[in-house]
Write a protein that binds this DNA or RNA. Structure first.
Length: 749
DNA sequence: TTAGGGTTAG
């Protein structure tokens, strides 16, 4: 809304004025019911009751026409009645109100107020304020009703400036001590996201009633400051203000977010004692509170005893089971729902997301579309998150197009999820395009950009983004710095990383967490400073976790440092005795360094303890379907074709000078067998499948659960050159963009 | 006045 609206008159000339006059004039006499009683002294006894019985604009217009015919249309009370109907009734029409308003020679403050109320009611606060301005120009003084009507129109962050100007007028006209005006101000500030100012007005109010308290409590909920909602509720009790069901619904919502079962139970008891009338909304709020606090038995008890349930009751139960980890039970209730809207679908989709079942997310999303339920922005964020995890670029792109075409609200959450999805699918160009189009960005946006560039090996771009972020006065947080350190790590920028690590605390007051120390270990270790990396671990103010030791172990593998590897592996196995990945890494290191005796020892220990290696798994999306391959997989319907293509590829590669790199294979087997095992790695199967299933020159995108092995890395480079294909592999830690025989990681991984 | 969303070291 333009601020100028209060400073300058923008009084609207009713475009429909002429049209309305025509409508009234054209009403044929047959439409008009005979109003014989109008003959009895109309001036002294206006037929007010006629207006009170009006149910539609047609009836109102008929009555109005009669009044005009009888020559009593200038009665002020009749004007008020017509305008009140048009402005406040559900069937009302502001254009007609405007038409009548223009015929009144000197409208009184009541009529002005009613017009303001009407424009606010139809969500046109700018028209309301124009009327207000016009009223002042006509020397009509506002009264205590004027401001609540005006203020009620300001309900969003964008309206705050206008709201504040109206507040100034409230003070100027001396209405700042009126209960209703104060309440309207509290409400306006609360809805415009300024709960602290609302609180200030509330504290200064001469009188407060339960409605004002309710406005404050719901305002804190809206600002996600649930702890303060609860404090207000307690304070209200101390002041002896009795809560209404509106209060309790808000308080229960806060309890649900705070997981405050104790206060929740107190509210439940208050309701059970008959202090407020029970309602569906109240019951829903109760089951939500119990479900959120993990008391699913109580939540279900209430749900089952309800005589009437709605979508929300069911959704809350589904969500409750998802939260308690019972995804199958959640699904059972979801399947039983009599009807489902986008919120219920999203609740179920989020359940699968939470349990990392990303494929099921996409399956459910397809079902949702089959049932013709339109996804909203919340659904889209969930789907994009699943696409990011799966590397499902085509589905992700489809989502972006769907959002544009179907006017799904493209808010900051959606844009941030899009950026994250594009980066995690290796498409940095599209991520940047989304970023550039954004009208406003928050710290999540900037952080997603930094992390995104970092994992894609574009360290310089990541650091440029950090500079832009600081220039835009957005404070980085701990996650931002994880991205920054990660960018330095993936690009071997050791000194820069060291500097960022110290400036993080010195300049931004962010205390390093175990994750930040982990990044430093990675930064130093990967660059070959393995001893210094161990020093960092020793000096950490907290206990190093398994990730930190695993990072050091990974660095030892790259730099073939057996001694340090043994230290790291020992520490790791103490923390996680059954971690298969550690044993495999240690085996890799022993194999590379030709320490076969140690290798056998580890293998023996693994067998004894029943430790299994995590099977390598690669995903590749083809025409919107995600295909999954594990090492040696033969379950794919096109398996035969895939293996014969793979054979062909290996022949082509050998012809081009490829030598199989079996150095990391920990098995005590012959060279041929080793080569065979390597050739069945999941990423090779996915590459072969990609080559036979897509058009020439189309990029092959693969997501792998483990780190890509040296041999597969080499093969991918050659494939990109020999077949002229861009191959993008996202492994556990980063992206490898293979183009024309080389990789974006510059073999630094 | 009741249900839902985003970034995180290996």
């Amino acid at each position: 809304m333009p601020l100028s609206i209060l400073r300058k008159t923008h009084f609207l000339r009713s475009p429909l004025k002429k049209k309305m006059a025509t409508i009234v004039a054209s009403m044929s006499p047959t439409h008009i019911s005979p109003l014989t009683h109008l003959h009895s002294s109309p001036e002294t006894n206006p037929p007010l009751s006629l207006f009170e019985n009006c149910n539609s604009m047609d009836q109102l217009k008929q009555t109005h026409s009669q009044i005009i015919q009888k020559g009593i249309a200038s009665e002020p009370i009749l004007h008020s009645k017509i305008i009140a109907f048009c402005c406040t009734s559900k069937a009302g029409c502001m254009n007609y109100a405007r038409y009548v308003f223009d015929t009144i020679p000197e409208p009184n403050v009541y009529i002005w107020n009613t017009m303001i109320k009407g424009y606010t009611r139809i969500n046109c606060p700018n028209y309301a304020v124009s009327f207000y301005k016009e009223m002042l120009e006509k020397n009509i003084k506002p009264d205590t009703y004027t401001f609540p009507f005006l203020l009620k129109g300001y309900t969003s962050d964008a309206a705050l400036q206008c709201g504040k100007l109206v507040h100034a007028h409230v003070c100027k006209f001396g209405f700042d001590s009126d209960l209703f005006v104060q309440r309207a101000l509290v409400c306006m500030y609360s809805l415009c996201g300024q709960i602290d100012i609302a609180c200030g007005v509330f504290d200064m109010s001469s009188k407060t009633d339960v409605v004002s308290w309710n406005v404050m409590i719901s305002g804190y909920n809206r600002s996600k400051r649930f702890d303060e909602s609860r404090k207000f509720f307690d304070a209200m009790g101390r002041k002896g203000v009795l809560p209404t069901s509106v209060t309790l619904v808000s308080v229960l919502s806060a309890c649900s977010k705070l997981k405050d079962l104790e206060t929740g139970k107190r509210v439940h008891l208050y309701i059970m004692n008959g202090n407020v009338d029970p309602s569906l909304i109240l019951e829903n709020a109760l089951i939500d509170m119990y479900a959120a606090c993990g008391a699913m038995d109580v939540a279900l008890g209430i749900f089952e005893s309800m005589t009437k349930r709605d979508l929300i009751s069911w959704t809350v139960i589904v969500k409750g089971f998802v939260n308690s980890g019972q995804i199958d039970v959640a699904r059972k209730y979801f399947d039983q729902m009599p009807e489902r809207d986008s919120v219920s679908w999203t609740a179920m989709i989020d359940g699968y997301l939470r349990f990392n079942n990303f494929k099921e997310v996409l399956i459910l999303f397809r079902e949702m579309q089959t049932e013709k339920v339109n996804p909203d922005e919340f659904t889209m964020v969930s789907i994009l998150t699943a696409c990011a995890q799966l590397g499902a670029l085509q589905v992700g792109e489809w989502v972006e197009t769907y959002i544009d075409k179907n006017q799904v609200k493209n808010d900051i959450y959606v844009a941030n999820a899009l950026i994250d999805m594009y980066f995690k699918c290796g498409n940095t160009e599209k991520a940047v395009r989304v970023f550039e189009k954004m009208a406003c960005r928050d710290k999540f946006t900037w952080t997603a950009m930094i992390v995104g560039f970092a994992i894609n090996g574009q360290g310089k771009e990541a650091l440029d983004i950090l500079s832009d972020m600081l220039r835009a006065s957005i404070s980085p947080d701990d996650v931002t710095y994880i991205g920054v350190l990660c960018a330095c790590t993936h690009n071997g920028m050791v000194n820069e990383g060291r500097n960022f690590f110290s400036s993080m605390t010195l300049d931004h007051g962010i205390e390093p967490s175990v994750a930040h120390y982990g990044c430093m270990v990675d930064l130093l270790g990967r660059a070959g400073h393995v001893t210094e990396a161990l020093e960092v671990i020793k000096k950490m103010p907290m206990e190093p976790n398994s990730i930190v030791w695993g990072t050091l172990l990974g660095a030892c593998r790259v730099h073939k440092n057996v001694e340090m590897a043994e230290i790291a592996a020992k520490e790791l196995l103490q923390l996680e005795p059954n971690n298969g990945a550690v044993c495999v890494l240690l085996c890799n290191i022993y194999a590379v360094c030709n320490k076969l005796e140690n290798l056998r020892e580890v293998r023996h220990m693994m067998m004894e303890r029943g430790i299994k290696k995590t099977p390598g798994c690669s995903l590749i999306e083809m025409n919107g379907i995600v295909h999954e391959f594990v090492a040696g997989d033969q379950s794919h319907p096109q398996s035969e074709e895939i293996y014969s293509k793979l054979e062909e590829i290996m022949e082509d590669l050998k012809f081009a000078g490829y030598l199989c790199n079996t150095s990391e294979l920990s098995l005590d087997i012959g060279e041929e067998e080793k080569e065979n095992a390597l050739n069945r790695h999941s990423e090779k199967l996915a590459i072969a499948f990609g080559l036979i299933s897509s058009e020439p020159r189309v990029t092959i995108r693969i997501v792998k659960n483990l780190r890509i092995c040296v041999d597969c890395h080499h093969v991918a480079k050659l494939v990109s050159r020999i077949y002229d294909r861009e191959v993008i592999v996202r492994d556990r830690t980063r992206f490898h963009h293979f183009r024309s025989g080389s990789c974006s990681c510059k073999d630094y991984w």
